[in-house]
Design a protein around this nucleic acid. Sequence first.
RNA 1: AGUCCGAUGGUGUAACGGUAGCACCACAGUUUUUGGUACUGUUUGUCUUGGUUCGAAUCCAGGUCGGACUACCA
Length: 559
Amino acid sequence: MSEEKSLNFLEEIIEQDIAEGKNGGRIHTRFPPEPNGYLHIGHATSICLNFGLAKKYNGKCNLRFDDTNPVTEETEYVESIKADIKWLLQGTGSEWANELYASDYFEQLYEFAVTLIKKGLAYVDDYSSEEIAATKGSTTEPGKESPSRSRSIEENLQLFADMRAGKYKDGEKVLRAKIDMAHPNLLLRDPLMYRIKHAHHHRTGDKWCIYPMYDFAHGQSDSIEHITHSICTLEFIHHRPLYDWFIEKLDIFPSHQYEFARRNLTYTVMSKRKLLQLVNEKHVSGWDDPRMPTISGMRRRGYPAEAIRQFCDTIGIAKRENISDVGVLEFCVREHLNKTANRVMAVLDPVKLVITNYPEGQEEIFNSENNPEDASAGSRQLHFSRELWIEREDFMEEPPKKFFRLGPGLMVRLKNAYIVKCTGFNKDAAGNVTEVLCEYLPETKSGSDTSGLTVKGTIHWVSVPHAKTAEVRLYDRLFKVEDPSSEEGDFKDYINPDSMHILPSVYIEPGLADAKPGERVQFMRKGYFCVDKDSTPDKVIFNRTVTLKDAWAKEMKKA
RNA sequence: AGUCCGAUGGUGUAACGGUAGCACCACAGUUUUUGGUACUGUUUGUCUUGGUUCGAAUCCAGGUCGGACUACCA
């Protein structure tokens, strides 16, 4: 039968809610980004979760921008967020049911606030930011009530209207909920509902000069949209009583909040503040730099959307702190690319191989399958000649025992061509190998080998006269340590100085010269690469998505 | 110190009172015209102390450790 997959704790809650007939069995989630930065791999988990749950239980998922702070929010971010979600969800059949904005509800939210004032549950406070902080109390001491707390309903109504009308400067007044200044949960000590900001909003322009706080916007927005399951990360768990308090006092649709632990990844940082710093201080080229853990960065790096989704599914969700090994993400990427990326040959660090017994001027064409994992990927033709570029590391003057490549007297197969035997090499004055010399064995021709010879190694190559060139950008992890945020000092002290290495001119098969941005291939024996958007008609640029597993490199490391 | 959350191999995640499983990593081997892929096998775990029970990772109590909260951010 079907493989019995266990449910995560949210699925359990949902299935129980459905079983109990809650909301008539209706499931409605939402993904609520704040448009003040680009989406990252942590958001990908949330997207997969919210949209995935909606799909699995025949529900809906809204996209709602939480745009209640005009100072940090921009339209550029709205656009990038929409593009990233669409890309990530491609092929899943999931899409947002509605594109919504918390700012759509400003008028409604204002009315909600008025309602609470009328019920004596909110008041306008004259306290400054500093005074509010000073009277907040602490984890061990209760706070002090503001003198403004005893204002009459009429006065509060008038003052709040005046706030909206722009009679006050930023910070001069604030609207607070009247709850309990001695509450053990600090968030319930008369939390702020509205603050004054004479700032231009990316959607409402200059219509408003008062803006609702997160706590007075999020739950009400959920309620307005009749969201049944409002899923957020663990740090909002203390907000839940407040979320429930507003809904209860307003007597509106009872959305419920559930929390899961945000996902962390090794060798990177995830907070938008830190990512913004990396961008602003030019440690990376932008939000979509291939080293960034952003969705757009990973896309540019060559990570397939399917692989990212697979990763989110693999690591699962739970309520405990975690830091997932970036190796798992890379595994998912390789797993997908292994099945889908065509194999091609490129020589990153070239040295010339001369086949001394191959006639000068002679050429041959060999056929090569594009993907051994996918017969439908077809095949292509490869030009072969007397002089080839091979990888410098595939030759050693004095090879160690189990070196299955070229060295004096050693034999290897040239992929899809002949077996060759190394007969010598030339060096320059500095002692660098300039040419490797070999002889080919005509009877070992690929596909019609009659020699009975077997060799341990097969190496890739590109014909010298046919080769084209490309720029290749080798990426490595952005940070030197697993968890930069938990180290002493500034996280930027742990940036990996070798996270990008540019090879200006590598040799590629001629057929690759007109590869299009976004195209993904495997450079045989080297890794998966993706054509970068910076490519031009005369210069194609490849980003290294991820290396292949390299058992030999590991072996050498041990020695 | 107050409130709240959490604790299962190196990492992530299952087991819902009845055989601690899966994935990644690591290690060993088989296959291989990619030292890739695929396949096989191995090592490694229930924070602690009590209690309930025929039986506890699971329920209860205490402890320990980790995290969150004291922004006019979300």
